[in-house]
Write a protein that binds this DNA or RNA. Structure first.
Lengths: 153, 153
DNA sequence: CCGGCATAGTTCAAATTTGAATTACTATTA
DNA sequence: TAATAGTAATTCAAATTTGAACTATGCCGG
């Protein structure tokens, strides 16, 4: 029987705020994106990664790593985006097993159309709510947190 | 046509860290809970709210408000918990339409069994990674963020 | 070159989540 | 008090997510 170190009041406040902020924001962003562009938040994130990548293409596995979804979840979403004509698949030259997801021109346009409203809401919900100092602490602190969490995956 | 205020590098870092930390931690907590106790994270949260409430019972709507799930999602999860014998439903005395979810003795025991491992992981992933100062800033900052986000719901 | 093992991506069934009805009741107002 | 609007919870079908096979390749030591 080990002694459990429960959370004190401040720790509990931080933990609850973290949890609540995470899901509330995610939910609102998803709703805004769907409403304005028909994309879900996961789909939007896929398009962003592809747009940032050289030639607008990435291996499925690379995508799955940076996104926080399972491999099968990614397969599903990429298929949806493919049906919508926003992404195409092509086989990887260096590895026959590999598949590259490529951003199409329509995909790039949809992303450009979606980005302003999305960014505006991110500002409104998170960035502009915080002082520059808070923002810096948050970036450092949560950067370290996510590095460690990612290491356990 | 409005000028879009894009995110600068620091803002982007904060935003990405926030997103990544949120989903990584949620995923790890869910895995730990399932592995150790068979509860999902949403289910665990339901038990916690009930345990904190007077008489271990809450209206469905009250539960749905503090949790970050839809009403139908809550109905589903409470049904699962009911099947497992951890929660019971009883009708609300003051409003015939209402339903009270009540924590059973088995539910309380399961929660007590689950809590230490859960809290330990929350510490390991978040609380103990941060300095007290960072923790305080995080609580303040994200507290305000979630208050505002909740106001938009 | 071969066997054994790791990897890439998909498929499949099952679990979950969602939002839009639906049902049944409460509250308000004229 | 009858009509109307609002609320509580559930049900339903559809979309998504998950993890566990599964298929097909790559890679490495002997």
């Amino acid at each position: 029987m080990e002694a459990v170190k429960w959370l004190d009041e401040d720790e509990m406040r931080a933990w609850h705020a973290f949890l609540a902020a995470g899901s509330l924001i995610d939910r609102l962003l998803d709703a805004q994106l769907k409403e304005a562009t028909g994309l879900s938040h996961p789909q939007y994130e896929i398009l962003v990664r592809l747009a940032d990548a050289p030639d607008g293409e990435l291996r499925m596995t690379e995508l799955a790593d940076t996104l926080l979804t399972s491999k099968s979840g990614l397969t599903y979403q990429v298929t949806q985006l493919e049906k919508a004509g926003l992404v195409a698949r092509r086989s990887c030259p260096s590895d026959v097993r590999g598949v590259l997801a490529v951003l199409t021109e329509a995909g790039r346009q949809r992303l450009e159309q979606a980005a302003p409203g999305h960014v505006a809401l991110v500002r409104e919900l998170l960035i502009d709510v915080l002082s520059p100092g808070q923002l810096a602490v948050l970036a450092d602190a949560l950067g370290e947190v996510s590095r460690r969490a990612a290491a356990r995956t």
